[in-house]
Each structure stands twice: as C-alpha cells, then as structure tokens.
Write a protein that binds this DNA or RNA. Structure first.
Lengths: 250, 250
DNA sequence: CATCACGGATTGGATACCAATTCTCTTTTT
DNA sequence: AAAAAGAGAATTGGTATCCAATCCGTGATG
C-alpha cells in the first residue's frame, strides 16, 4: 500500500491562493491585464470561484512583487510604472546581469558555454522562421539562462523579479525593437565573455539595455483594456475563451 | 474646512496587516524570533489582538520576502537557511554591491563622497567609544548608504531584501567578527573607489563578504528561543517588556 | 513489536456581517 | 445655471464563526 514513490513533495501550488496568484501573474505578464487595470476583489472572486479572502492574499503577493499596487479603500490595480521607474528597473537589470557576466567569465565551464550557444542558435532559427513570438521568448530567455548558470537561486529569484517588472513596461511602449539586433548582441556577449573581454561585455550589456529602454516610446494613454472576464478566461479552465489571438494584441 | 495641508498621503502603514508585518519583521531581524521558531496563527492573533486572517496576510508577506517559510497545514516558521543558501545570499550581496560600486565610481559627485566619509567617521567614533551596538548598526548601514547613493529605489529595495535575509544568518553563527577590520575595509573601499581603482574595489568587496561568511561558524543546534510572548512584548505597546537586555543576546 | 485507527490541534478556506472610506449622483444653494 | 453640499451605493479592510483537510501523537490491536 505505501508505495515508495508517494512523497513527491509536490511543492507546486498546493494552495488555492497561490494558484490564483500565479494565474493573475501570468495574465499580467502576458499583457492581458494592462497597467492601470482595476482588479476588483468581488469580480476576481467570482471569476476564480473563490472567496474574497484568497483573492486578497493573491493581490498582496502580487503587490509584494511590484506587479500591482493596492490603494487603501480603493482597490488593487495593475502597476503603472513611470518613465523614471522604468529607467531604474533597467538599470537594476543591467547591474545584475553585469555582475552575473563577471561571475560567469571566471567560473563557467565548457558545457555552460555550449548551453548558451545552443540557445542563441535556437533563437536564430526562430527568427529565420519569422516566428516572432518564439524569438521574443527565446530572446528574453537568454538573460534568464545566463543568470541560471550562476547556480545561485537567490540571484535567479531577484533577476526574475526585475524581469517581471520589466514586462510591465512593455505595454507602455509602442515600437517593437529589432530582434536580430538583440540576437547579435547576445551572441557577441557570449563570445566576448568566453574570451575574457570583461570590460567590453559590461559596456555591451549596458548598451543593450539602454538600447531597449531608449527604444521605448512611452505611451501613457489609457488603453481600451479588455474586461476582467475576457482577460482571464483563457487562463481559467473553461470553454469561453476564443483563444486564437492571445499572443499579439495590436 | 478644506485646509490645504490635509492631503499628506500618509503612506506609512495604514493597514493593520502591514503594521503586524513590520512588527514581526523587526522582531525577526532583531533576532528575538530565531530561525525555526514557530509562528502559530492563533498565538499571534492573540498577541496582536487581531484576527487570524490579518496574521496570515502578514505571514504571506514575510514568506514572500524570504523571512519565514509556510509549510502547508503545518504552519509558519522563521526561515532556517542552510549553509549553501547562506553562501548564495552573500554572493548575491557581493554582486549587488560590486555593481553599485561600479556605478558610483562613474557617477558620484563630491557631496556623495563626503557623505560616505562622514559615515565612516561616525563608525570609527563608535568603535572608539566601544559602543558595539552602534558600531554594528553603522557598519551595516554603510552598505545601505552606499546603495542609496545610486538613487535607484529598485536596487535599494533588492539590496534591502538580501540584507534582511542575511540577518537571518547571523543567528546561525557564533563568532562576532572584527568591526575594526570591517571598518578599515569600508574606508579602503571608499578610498579606492574615489581614485577609480575599480578592480581593486571589486576584489575588496568580494573579500569583504567572504570574510564575513567564512567567519561564520554554523550552529544548527536548537536554541532555547524565548516564547512568542516574550519575543514580541517589547514591540507591542504594553508595559511587560523589561527592555534592558534587548540588543546583546550572549 | 509493528501497524493501524482514532482524536486533538492547526491550517486553509468559505460565508456572513460590520465599519470605514470612496465614488457617484442627486439635491440644494447662491 | 453652475457650484457646493449631501445622501446613498459600492468597495475595501477587518472580524467572527464555521467547516474540511491534513498532520501528529496516542493508544488499541494483531
């Protein structure tokens, strides 16, 4: 009876509250809930078929991660970052990734370099296929991959946190940046890193993020912002969602 | 009636739940609640004269900050970091402060350097007075001060988060490290930084944290750990606390 | 002696209810 | 008629109470 394989230590989202947190987070990061969108407790409770309490717990977690703001007696909203904050976020990202690069330049082994180059090749293929969504994911994933090679979960978590916030900025800008260019920079980073040209790597990462943030055309107008129901339906198991056009909004 | 000075935007802990969060955090960081201590919802609710729900919200926030762990159906405990995690935390701290140092070396103006040197002098005075607690605070404060000079709130918050976690490590080690030595290093950091000797600064920061983490003698035995009531009474407004021996445990 | 079953005890969650604040829309006043 | 004032609805913050699930220790049982 006591099969030895039971204690899987299923750490993944045992709590309803955490599940809701993750779902909301995904909806926000996927830009289905845009900055400024109101996250009413009653509405969410209804959509998730949960009590207001677990909703509030989820909102507290998201607020703690900087993805929503909770205004007293007014409610929770998807966080709207200012241009100044956008710059700070990218500066933080630069700082972290520069530090990671320095660590990796000293410590990474052959297998590690291979992983990075494989990843870059994947992205290059995606671009050739003109699979923009995939290229987007891989392009962002490159940075996370870089960080994960430090084998330091604390740094990974911090980095992930800042990356998440940076996703909130993407809905504030219009122009899509040039993937090829970014890819080339990624490739150059790995190359320089491997050859120990640390200083140039630093400058490149700095330039890389400046390139992104400068590409932003801040757009603080109020977007139409689909309703909560529309925004969340593809994430909550139930028919309703005409899930065709999830990825690309405009 | 509408006095122009009313909208003070009192952002400071309007919520009961947040107040409790901060109080618990202070108690944990002050090492009155040691790693492994159980934070029972019922007990806390009683001590804070609050409902279990706001307690849980506070615990969720603390868990999100990595100060407590919540084990399903078992409760919340002050987080007990492993040696591996301790190393990761100090690595993260090193990474952040190195990055900050690099930024400051390029950007800091005269007033900034003065602030740093004033701070060091304060600590030196405290050491001469043999005011260990003060020296401790100032020593830790140096790093936060350094980070705050970036004028980047995101980086400051991240740094503060990691520093908080590092406080949880201090209760796991026995030997107190040598303040004078650390002070000297701080002073040297500022000096080198100002002269643009970036590489040496990096090595010094690295060495600095290694110095701390190597000074640790991990002690995983269960400390007696005073009761919740004892631990929290000085933080909750009421007579009870014989506040004499708060700072220095052993 | 090992195993299983049975109660506490604690957490996770739901529901109902109330207080405080904000928002909105109507009413009143000038 | 425009602006100020006010009443009422809606929303959040919080409490109390109840119930289900789970964990843990204890004791019965083979």
């Amino acid at each position: 009876m006591p099969s030895a394989f039971e204690k899987e230590k299923d750490n993944s989202l045992a709590n309803k509250s955490e599940k809701i947190t993750e779902t909301l987070k995904r909806a926000i990061l996927a830009q289905r809930l845009l900055p400024g969108a109101k996250l009413g407790e009653r509405d969410l409770a209804e959509k998730f078929d949960a009590s207001r309490i677990v909703i509030r717990q989820a909102l507290i977690r998201l607020a703690n991660d900087g993805l929503v703001t909770i205004e007293r007696n007014r409610g929770a909203f998807v966080k709207k970052y200012s241009l100044q904050e956008a710059i700070e976020i990218y500066d933080a990202l630069t700082l972290i990734e520069q530090g990671v690069a320095a660590q990796l330049a000293a410590r990474l082994d052959r297998a590690g370099w291979q992983i990075l180059q494989d990843h870059i090749k994947l992205q290059a293929d995606a671009i050739e296929r003109e699979d923009n969504d995939m290229a987007d994911d891989l392009g962002a994933g490159f940075h996370s991959l870089l960080v994960s090679l430090t084998n330091n979960r604390v740094i990974q978590d911090i980095h992930a946190q800042v990356v998440q916030r940076s996703h909130l900025l993407r809905s504030l800008h219009i122009s899509r940046f040039d993937y090829c260019n970014l890819l080339e920079e990624h490739s150059k980073i790995v190359d320089l890193l491997q050859r120990g040209r640390l200083k140039q790597v630093m400058e490149l990462i700095d330039h890389h993020h400046h390139h992104v943030v400068r590409g932003y055309v801040m757009d603080f107008s109020d977007h139409p912002a689909m309703s909560l129901h529309e925004a969340l339906s593809p994430f909550i198991a139930e028919g309703g969602g005409s899930g065709a056009s999830v990825g690309t909004a405009e």
